[in-house]
Design a protein around this nucleic acid. Structure first.
Lengths: 252, 252
DNA sequence: AGAGACCACTGGTCAGACCAGTTTCTGTAA
DNA sequence: TTACAGAAACTGGTCTGACCAGTGGTCTCT
């Protein structure tokens, strides 16, 4: 077995079996290396492993100390990588839309430029489905239409990123509320934008497609803002409230 | 913050954010060291930390692998590993840059529009560091400069997405090679672009900043294309070659 | 075709140097 | 004498380059 592993086990045993109390200082790396007759590298690697396990903490210039937190209670590790962004910040939705505006625009641009005949067929099919559906009853055709366009960009990275953003959007109540309750006049404008977008892509006009797509997202975003300012406290409630127990925020 | 800590965080992010799938092999210590421009010791310490957290497993003579049991992977990260996109498709790097062009542009735009005096100070500091450093010896100031700009956009989503893209870029050999070996004339142009970008943001000219930032990314991308077409077999090597599930070998 | 040597990887360990924070001691100035 | 600045002696952090030890592919000889 690897020596560094042995060392980390020995130290952990030493700590957990009561040899060392929380906050207590561990001998310096050089001392440990000399005592256990291994190189300092091995000691450092073992200490990093214990650090990862939450058994010890290390402070530059001072030393390593037994963690106050007992191992096994790994409550820190379950922070979702992205979800903490949403904690009490409904504004994040607009940040999201801000980015989406840009990327949907690019997707439309590239789709108009690169779409194959197969892409054209798919987009057309999705567009027809969109035309024939009542947006109030079902938002899926809308997704399908945009999805077809994004995929026609032939950029897998773009597809993935936009997919992630869309998933994130589904995490907010605002998104679903706004999707479900567009005002009549606004819905009309959205239909028009869809048509313009469709035509621009089919006609192979990248710049035009980009412009329309961006305007579309921005319009949706502004519509949400309007609804929000108009009242309904509903749309202020974040979807995943209880996960955020930690008010402290790490900023930059 | 300690570099080894940064490295372990970056790798963990990369894994947990859906970049790497369980059982997938991560680059060798020597490759990571070269790519992240740190010593192998730092890489080993970071890997030991991840080992302690149970994120990876290491096998002597074979390599390090993403653990099958990834803690906290209960939600959306399952939606699909992104890394498979890279298998045998160096083109993906350019897809990445294509998206980055757009987002860096937006970041610059927003930074020019929203940067506070504190942001100005940070950006200036990063820019000065950039001016006084030999880009051949250290790429970190470059990262720092762009990072400062992105953060000045005050859009956390944008920050996160661009960070993910940057991490992904580190997984390709092309990126590091191109970072290390820019031609003299090209480097001059890059320096000029940095200056223009800096001035546009400090002067609060969003459109101009956006334009320069986009041109910058596109220039970098084209430079890589040039280098690639010029020869060096190095940049043809995909970083994460064969996954366990695909026995077929794509050897050029 | 099979067996074995070899070579090119992989991670594991070591040694020694130097950098960067922290604490302590010390010599000098007030 | 006290107060403070600075040197020294710790601490962990990083780098370098070397070598050992498993793994797996390739090449050659039988």
């Amino acid at each position: 077995m690897a020596i560094s592993r042995e060392v980390s086990y020995r130290l952990e045993r030493l700590i957990l079996d009561g040899g060392l109390a929380p906050e207590q200082k561990i001998p310096s790396e050089r001392q440990l290396a000399a005592r256990l007759r291994v190189s300092r590298s091995v000691i450092r690697e073992a200490l990093h492993e214990l650090q990862g396990r939450g058994v010890i903490e290390t402070r530059h210039g001072k030393g390593s100390f037994v963690s106050t937190m007992v191992p096994g209670s790994d409550d820190l590790r379950e922070q979702g990588p992205l979800m903490h962004l949403f904690e009490g910040h409904p504004r994040t939705l607009y940040d999201l839309l801000e980015v989406r505006e840009q990327l949907e625009g690019q997707a439309a641009f590239l789709a108009a430029k690169r779409a194959t005949s197969l892409d054209h067929h798919r987009i057309t099919k999705a567009y027809r489905a969109l035309e024939e559906t009542d947006p109030l009853s079902n938002a899926r055709p809308d997704h399908g239409f945009h999805q077809a366009i994004v995929e026609a960009s032939h950029n897998p990275i773009l597809v993935h990123v936009l997919n992630s953003l869309k998933n994130m959007m589904l995490m907010t109540v605002q998104a679903s509320v706004a999707n479900l309750n567009p005002r009549a006049e606004k819905r009309k404008k959205i239909v028009q934008q869809h048509r313009q977008l469709y035509e621009a892509i089919m006609a192979g006009r990248p710049a035009s497609a980009q412009k329309v797509a961006m305007a579309h997202v921005r319009f949706v975003s502004e519509s949400m803002r309007d609804m929000e300012s108009e009242g309904s406290e509903l749309i202020r409630i974040p979807v995943l409230p209880e996960t955020a127990r930690n008010p402290h925020h790490i900023s930059g």
